[in-house]
Design a protein around this nucleic acid. Structure first.
Lengths: 342, 342
DNA sequence: CTGAAAGCGCTAACAC
DNA sequence: GTGTTAGCGCTTTCAG
């Protein structure tokens, strides 16, 4: 037998389909008596509204798209967890669109996102150009950016420049003068727009303290543990000319650097201090000092903003900046051969 | 102005809506001339079919659900990447349902999955009981299980018992006699059903070799780097009575064990051999010997199977076993104080 | 507060 | 090969 329809419920409850719809959706006024009978009937029949019919008739689908460049990287999967949980609480479905770098960028943007089956979308650390953003907005899909700049759309993110500055100043305060940076490439800007900002924050703090920053200490990696491990090993190879501290743009890279140092026989933080960003769980075992950017909360908050937007009136593209917090553990300490200051 | 409808395209191309529908979907026969005009008109108007209308009318939604207990853990996010890519290639949408452990288990199963908006679902390493599986199947949603047993539904997975056996035999062949296991809890069985199988494989191999397996060497962890690090440290603390090798049920745990060993001053593989499972990228920097279970391919293959199922006739619940392969690196070696065999 | 009825935009028989 | 038309199952004016 086919699944029960709204009409079946109406018949059983002895009311019209309109009343059933109102009673079940909570929209419009229904006498509590009618409501009770409807709910009773719906329950007995095991009725579930048809998503497609409901969406077609109402124009809304209670479905939100999440667009991201990777799902198997910590930041993205963590934000995704936050988004998924918040949407679930709100009774929304979540459609996932993974660029896989840039592999499906075109496909997602043209074939998938425009099928008008989304009430809104959140773009995680994605650099959409104005044309792409406009395309979405023109299709009637409000977009919210998380962790990346989105021209013409509201965003939430942390202040990456400030994060870079604070991490660096923490090391400077410990007496370090020779501080290297391990971050993402500029070209990675399309997916990791924060990279250059964190690097700029480091450069700014170094300059403000009158410290030199050679190109050799401005290391470009790809945000993976393994690549960072290798690059840190190269960076630290020469005992005569190596930094005493490293600021890594992510905890995974920071952890890779710690492992590299150990493999070279260097103690952390005795001979090398390392600080990361993220509060990645792996940092705990490494005793990593880091700056927590509350990735999961970013996802939760993104959904709150988006639902407000859908419900409400406030459609200005506000760029909201979320706080990030120090988590000091044991990977940072006074510079070697000093009394230190901590 | 409102978006163009099928009718607008029909008018512009000078044909009926039925022809437009056929021309655009590729179903049914349309003269190439009509097809060309339709495509032309559709393009000029920027027409995109309405997903909801199409789904309502046809009963199919080109949307597949992915149900999993976590998204921020390597195995799950990697399988998810594979599934997402394969679905994208096939032009299917992907709806994500995250249990977050068991937090949303009920909600997902009752509120979300049954809304008849899914053509099918893949359950990643999820232990659905027969009633839950039946509920889905009864709702007309074919389910495929990846990496976990699903009663009454087709599945694909590796042979975890065999993996445990092979990993252990690798260590035994290197001369090890004191081999510990770091795996998941039995109770974790609801999400990591492979845990107990890998452990059983280890026990079996040890027994077959006539080797003792004390309860102290059968360590239960939670599949995280940090927990494994801590437990391995405890396991290795006593120099007088510690294993010479560890078989960990995942690379993350194996890496945690390697770090623990180093923090205790033990060399790997000189004083301790470690082998994991997964081919997690982090294993590279650790030089981890592992068994690759090809997680991404599991996801890709799951989609292939599901689409075949949707297209075809073969509806038997086949349990397919995929191969897993050794990746020998530098974390395993001859037992300490022996000439070794390799 | 409730019912009748007109669609929402497309697909799939069924005719021609 | 192509057009006609009856829905798909629900929401939402508009009356009452």
């Amino acid at each position: 037998m086919s699944p029960p329809r709204l009409q079946d419920v109406a018949a059983r409850a002895g009311v019209s389909t309109a009343t059933v719809s109102r009673a079940l959706s909570g929209k419009g006024h229904v006498s509590s008596r009618a409501r009770a009978r409807v709910q009773q009937a719906a329950h007995e029949l095991g009725f579930v509204v048809s998503y497609h019919a409901s969406s077609l008739a109402s124009g809304r689908s209670r479905n939100i798209g999440v667009v991201l460049p990777y799902v198997d990287r910590w930041y993205f999967s963590t934000v995704l967890e936050g988004v998924a949980g918040a949407l679930m609480e709100a009774g929304y479905d979540l459609s996932l669109y993974n660029f896989e770098g840039d592999r499906y960028r075109e496909t997602v943007l043209t074939d998938f996102l425009l099928r008008k089956r989304l009430d809104a979308a959140v773009a995680i650390s994605l650099h959409l150009n104005p044309a792409e953003t406009q395309q979405l907005l023109a299709a009637g899909i409000p977009v919210l950016g998380v962790g990346g700049p989105l021209v013409g759309a509201p965003t939430i993110s942390i202040d990456d420049h400030d994060v870079g500055r604070r991490a660096t100043e923490h090391l400077i305060a410990l007496g370090h003068r020779r501080i290297a940076h391990l971050g993402g490439a500029e070209e990675f800007g399309s997916h990791f727009p924060m990279s250059s900002d964190r690097r700029a924050g480091w450069e700014g703090a170094m300059a403000a303290a009158g410290l030199a920053v050679g190109p050799a200490w401005s290391v470009v990696s790809d945000y993976t543990f393994t690549d960072a491990y290798q690059r840190a090993k190269n960076l630290l190879a020469d005992p005569a000319d190596r930094p005493t501290a490293i600021f890594a743009a992510s905890d995974e890279m920071a952890a890779g650097a710690v492992l590299a140092a150990r493999d070279l026989g260097l103690t952390v933080p005795g001979e090398l201090s390392v600080i990361g960003v993220d509060a990645h769980p792996i940092g705990e075992a490494f005793g990593l000092t880091t700056i927590d950017q509350h990735a999961r909360e970013q996802g939760v908050h993104a959904v709150e903003r988006l639902l407000e937007h859908l419900a409400g009136t406030n459609h200005e593209p506000v760029h909201e900046v979320l706080p990030a917090h120090f988590v000091v553990r044991s990977s940072t300490g006074p510079v070697p051969g000093s009394a230190g200051r901590s």
